[in-house]
Every structure is written in C-alpha cells, then in structure tokens.
C-alpha cells in the first residue's frame, strides 16, 4: 500500500458516501444516472468475487464489502425507494453499447483465460466507461447540482490517484498491470472536461453548467 492508493481509495469511498448522503438527505436522486450506478454495482460485484477466497488484509476486505453494499443500496435508492425522483427521461444512454463491447474485449484481452480473471478484466474495462451515462445525462440536462459535481470530482480523482500509484509501484516494486493502467487512463481522460469545468466553475462558487 502507498499513500497515493490510500488517498485514492479514500477519495473513492468519499464519492460513494457523498452520493448516498445526497440522495438520503434530499430524498431525491434528481440529476443522478441510475444507469451509471447500476454499472458501478456490476463493476464491484464482478471484481470482488474473490472476496472470501483471496484474503489480502482487513482493510481490503472491509473496503470491498463497503463498496458492494453501498453501490447496491444506491441502486436500490434510485430504482425503488426514491424512484419517483429518478429522471429517466434524461438518463437515456444505451448501456448495452458499453456492456457488450466491454464483455467481448474481456474475452479477447486478459491476463488469464479463467472465469474469475475474465470477470475481473470485464470489471476493469467496464469501470473505465461506467461514468459515461452520468456525463451524458449532465450534457443533456446542461447542468449538475453542486453536490453531484463534488461526487464526480472525488470519483474522478480516485482513479487519477491510482495512476500515480501505478507509476510508484512500477518504479519501487517493479509491478505493473497493463490492463488496469490502460483502462485507468481511459477512465481518467473521460473526466478531463469535467475536471476543467469543476475547477473553473464550481471552485469559483458557480453552478456547474455544460454547454448544452
């Protein structure tokens, strides 16, 4: 473990908790893409199948359980509990255009052609594009609530910090995982225009509005 990965994990945890808090406090999931949250739940459930077979550390196990539980609760909030506030008219990204190609790629490009490894690879590829329905929804509504932009910033920062972690591990541990690195770079690049808007607008106290 290194400080970059630790801060990255905490940023990820913060993002997940910000989102849960926003939905619970405002009792509304307006502006939130249920499709992205569904994809994140899929990412965690396919990545952490080794939760009980591959013990790394108490921290690792704890975080995996928190991620799985929180992502499922978030999906439950959006599609069940606060369903009335779910903005399905703007959450129209065709997720099958993500899941199918990512599924195919996971079969073709992986480290090991075993079910667990293919599912892990699927999860890594899927995570890199899982935010697209959310970014698409914001581009359609033309704006995002400030709390939602803080959520997105923390979520984008997590994988950006992981890239620093991978550079660190390459130089100090001689360890690297090209699949995770390439997917992580794609994932972070997708946030770039959002990062720009967040820093130039939200941090200036303005509302985040995308040129529709």
């Amino acid at each position: 473990m290194n400080v970059f990965r630790l801060i990255g994990d905490l940023s990820h945890l913060l993002a997940i908790l910000i989102l849960l808090w926003k939905i619970w406090k405002t009792r509304s999931c307006s502006g939130i893409s249920g499709k992205s949250q569904f994809l994140f739940a899929l990412v965690f459930t396919t990545r952490y199948l080794d939760l009980f077979t591959n013990f790394i550390s108490p921290y690792n196990t704890f975080m995996k359980i928190v991620y799985i539980v929180c992502s499922c609760v978030t999906v439950y909030f959006i599609y069940v509990k606060f369903k009335a506030t779910y903005d399905s008219n703007h959450d129209t990204f065709r997720v099958e255009f993500l899941v199918v190609p990512v599924g195919g790629l996971a079969f073709l490009v992986n480290h090991d052609f075993t079910p667990l490894e293919i599912l892990w690879t699927f999860s890594i590829y899927l995570e890199s594009v899982a935010i697209l329905p959310q970014l698409f929804m914001i581009s359609k509504t033309g704006e995002a609530e400030t709390i939602t932009s803080h959520y997105l910033f923390a979520l984008g920062a997590y994988r950006a910090l992981y890239i620093v972690n991978w550079v660190y591990r390459y130089y100090f541990e001689g360890f690297f995982d090209l699949i995770a690195i390439v997917a992580g770079c794609v994932q972070t690049i997708l946030y770039c225009d959002f990062f720009y808007l967040y820093i130039t607008k939200v941090l200036q106290g303005k509302k985040l509005s995308l040129p529709a």
Binding site: D50, I56, Y67, F175, L178
Partner: peptide
C-alpha cells in the same frame, strides 16, 4: 509482462 501478483488493489 505483468509480474504475477495477487490482486491486492481494490
């Protein structure tokens, strides 16, 4: 290539 390492990252 990737050194075979247990998946210790989240």
């Amino acid at each position: 290539s990737k050194t075979k390492k247990k998946k210790d990252e989240l």
